[in-house]
Design a protein around this nucleic acid. Structure first.
Lengths: 202, 202
DNA sequence: GTCTATATCTAGATAGAC
DNA sequence: GTCTATCTAGATATAGAC
């Protein structure tokens, strides 16, 4: 919570001890180092993220379900957004974490690739090979950096549901142009619905 | 250079003094604080970025010219990539810098919007209003975070021309689906050419 | 397990001679 | 303008009593 609110580099171990109502010494009884705390949090994130990376073989390819998957994914990342906000430094300090994160990204990319392939197999999507790689780059960029990006403007970092809707709609929009007309319309209408609903919240 | 290589938080004022072959005391004669150095570098960046934000009225809308514009923009950002790598922290520490950066982003977004509008006026581009906003979000995300994103995998952060080609092609690909067929083909062929050329470098 | 007190270290920044 | 030497603050981490 503190990391999310203040940023990992700005949270001291004394502050953590203070906030958890234990002494600094006690904190270091439970954790070997500050980095150890970060690592422990990363592990929790990774465990929860894991199931979202397994694209089930019998995955439904309907817009609703994809939306929901993306929603779960962004929501979880939002809870651990301090990790994504300081990716460069957090991974630079710790080569274990660095490898772990890279591995996660590669798996996420593969999951996205498999999903596109499924859509291709079903005839719903058609895309050239070079376009597919570029699309995957763009998708990954959104999946990794949407949270820090949105925080530059709104502070709330995906706590706000409106921000999340825009994130998901943005991701889906990147895929839409390559969809067959029927699915294209289905996706577009879903996005419109959510976006209209979200604006109504204001 | 040090900031780019090691990351701003990991560069001490003593190291800067060392690298520039002057004493720490002398460094503080020339700059009031470390943040002052960051600010000075940001100013240089902003001055050089300024002309790239002015989309000329008589802008040519050919793929080649857009490519070149994006190339200049990414190249410049690459030279100051430490700013983009630690956006969250760098702007959090200094509210002046925060405002300045936000202003830059908004202007960049406006520039992109104007460019899209020009394409619309000329009949080359057709896009719905809600799609346009989402597209602008996605474009901005690429323009702001492509460099740190690429650094997660390659270290070289846009020094490598291959990385830059992918960045630009990715941006253009996001616009392509909304282009009229003639321009769509023109853009696609340009991307293919650069991408093929870049792969040949390996 | 938990505390208080403190060690250690390193960063940014300053003082004052030259 | 430039230097050496040093201050100061704040952060991580440890020692040792309870």
């Amino acid at each position: 919570m503190l990391f999310n609110r203040l940023g990992e580099p700005n949270v001291t171990t004394n502050l953590i001890a203070d906030e958890t109502c234990i002494s600094p010494g006690n904190l270091y009884y439970h954790f070997n180092s500050k980095q150890d705390i970060v690592l422990e949090l990363f592990k929790r994130f990774a465990v929860q993220f894991e199931p979202l990376l397994d694209v089930p073989a019998e995955l439904s390819l309907h817009a609703q379900d994809l939306w929901f998957q993306l929603h779960l994914s962004f929501e979880l990342k939002g809870h651990f957004r301090f990790l994504y906000r300081n990716l460069a430094d957090i991974t630079a300090d710790d080569s274990n974490l660095n490898r772990a994160f890279k591995g996660l990204f590669l798996r996420e990319r593969e999951a996205a690739r498999n999903l596109l392939s499924s859509l291709e197999d079903s005839g719903a999507l058609s895309i050239r090979k070079t376009e597919k790689e570029l699309l995957l780059n763009n998708l990954m960029l959104s999946l990794v950096y949407w949270i820090p990006f949105s925080e530059l403007f709104s502070e709330s970092g995906l706590e706000d549901s409106d921000v999340q809707v825009k994130a998901i709609a943005g991701v889906l929009q990147m895929v839409m142009p390559y969809l067959r007309e029927r699915e294209h319309i289905e996706f577009a209408e879903l996005c419109d619905t959510y976006l209209a609903h979200s604006r109504a919240d204001d």
